[in-house]
Amino acid sequence: MGILDKFKSNKSAHKAAHKASDAAEKKMNERTGGKYEQQIDSGQQQAERRLGMERDRPDQP
């Protein structure tokens, strides 16, 4: 079992990761003045998808 497998099965880690991801997105949007909001959102979604953190999945908070 790899480190990402352990992460994927840990619900509290998911919650913390989502919170950190949202904070990073907010900070980047503040620094760019919202100019690249769509690109930042797209990048956040891709990163979360690759880590198995899709928000549309019903088994996640």
Rank of each mutant, 00 (worst) to 15 (best):
residue 33 G to T: 02
residue 37 E to C: 05
residue 15 K to L: 05
residue 30 E to H: 04
residue 50 R to T: 08
residue 43 G to K: 01
residue 31 R to E: 11
residue 4 L to Y: 03
residue 58 P to Q: 05
residue 58 P to E: 05
residue 10 N to H: 03
residue 55 R to Q: 07
residue 42 S to V: 07
residue 54 E to S: 14
residue 49 R to N: 09
residue 48 E to K: 13
residue 60 Q to V: 10
residue 23 A to C: 09
residue 60 Q to N: 13
residue 7 F to R: 05
residue 11 K to W: 06
residue 31 R to H: 12
residue 50 R to K: 15
residue 11 K to C: 03
residue 60 Q to S: 06
residue 54 E to T: 08
residue 31 R to W: 12
residue 35 K to Y: 09
residue 50 R to D: 11
residue 15 K to I: 11
residue 59 D to G: 08
residue 47 A to K: 04
residue 15 K to Q: 07
residue 17 A to R: 05
residue 48 E to S: 07
residue 56 D to Q: 13
residue 5 D to C: 07
residue 60 Q to M: 13
residue 22 D to Q: 11
residue 20 A to R: 10
residue 5 D to R: 10
residue 52 G to W: 00
residue 56 D to T: 11
residue 24 A to S: 15
residue 40 I to M: 01
residue 23 A to R: 11
residue 26 K to R: 14
residue 8 K to N: 10
residue 44 Q to P: 02
residue 52 G to T: 00
residue 14 H to T: 12
residue 10 N to C: 04
residue 29 N to H: 00
residue 38 Q to H: 11
residue 47 A to R: 06
residue 37 E to G: 07
residue 39 Q to P: 02
residue 21 S to H: 03
residue 26 K to G: 03
residue 46 Q to G: 05
residue 8 K to L: 06
residue 33 G to M: 02
residue 5 D to K: 08
residue 14 H to G: 10
residue 39 Q to I: 02
residue 50 R to A: 13
residue 13 A to E: 08
residue 61 P to T: 09
residue 32 T to L: 03
residue 12 S to D: 15
residue 7 F to H: 05
residue 60 Q to A: 09
residue 31 R to K: 14
residue 33 G to V: 02
residue 19 K to G: 04
residue 44 Q to M: 12
residue 26 K to Q: 14
residue 16 A to K: 14
residue 17 A to I: 07
residue 61 P to L: 11
residue 33 G to W: 02
residue 41 D to Q: 15
residue 11 K to M: 09
residue 51 L to G: 01
residue 34 G to D: 00
residue 22 D to G: 04
residue 44 Q to V: 10
residue 9 S to H: 09
residue 25 E to A: 14
residue 40 I to S: 01
residue 30 E to Q: 14
residue 13 A to T: 03
residue 43 G to I: 00
residue 34 G to C: 01
residue 52 G to C: 00
residue 40 I to E: 00
residue 58 P to C: 01
residue 11 K to G: 06
residue 46 Q to Y: 10
residue 29 N to D: 00
residue 17 A to E: 07
residue 61 P to H: 05
residue 26 K to W: 04
residue 48 E to L: 13
residue 8 K to Q: 11
residue 51 L to H: 02
residue 36 Y to K: 07
residue 36 Y to Q: 04
residue 53 M to C: 06
residue 58 P to Y: 03
residue 29 N to G: 00
residue 11 K to Y: 08
residue 51 L to C: 03
residue 53 M to L: 15
residue 45 Q to D: 07
residue 42 S to R: 12
residue 45 Q to G: 04
residue 7 F to Q: 07
residue 57 R to H: 14
residue 12 S to Q: 15
residue 19 K to E: 14
residue 18 H to W: 15
residue 2 G to W: 07
residue 22 D to L: 08
residue 8 K to I: 05
residue 14 H to A: 11
residue 35 K to W: 08
residue 16 A to H: 13
residue 1 M to N: 08
residue 26 K to V: 03
residue 22 D to N: 14
residue 34 G to W: 01
residue 17 A to W: 08
residue 32 T to Q: 02
residue 46 Q to D: 12
residue 17 A to P: 03
residue 19 K to H: 12
residue 60 Q to Y: 13
residue 5 D to H: 08
residue 52 G to E: 00
residue 40 I to L: 03
residue 14 H to R: 13
residue 16 A to C: 08
residue 8 K to Y: 03
residue 36 Y to W: 07
residue 40 I to K: 01
residue 50 R to F: 15
residue 14 H to D: 14
residue 21 S to M: 10
residue 50 R to V: 10
residue 21 S to P: 01
residue 53 M to G: 02
residue 1 M to T: 10
residue 32 T to Y: 01
residue 28 M to C: 11
residue 19 K to M: 09
residue 27 K to P: 02
residue 29 N to Y: 00
residue 57 R to S: 13
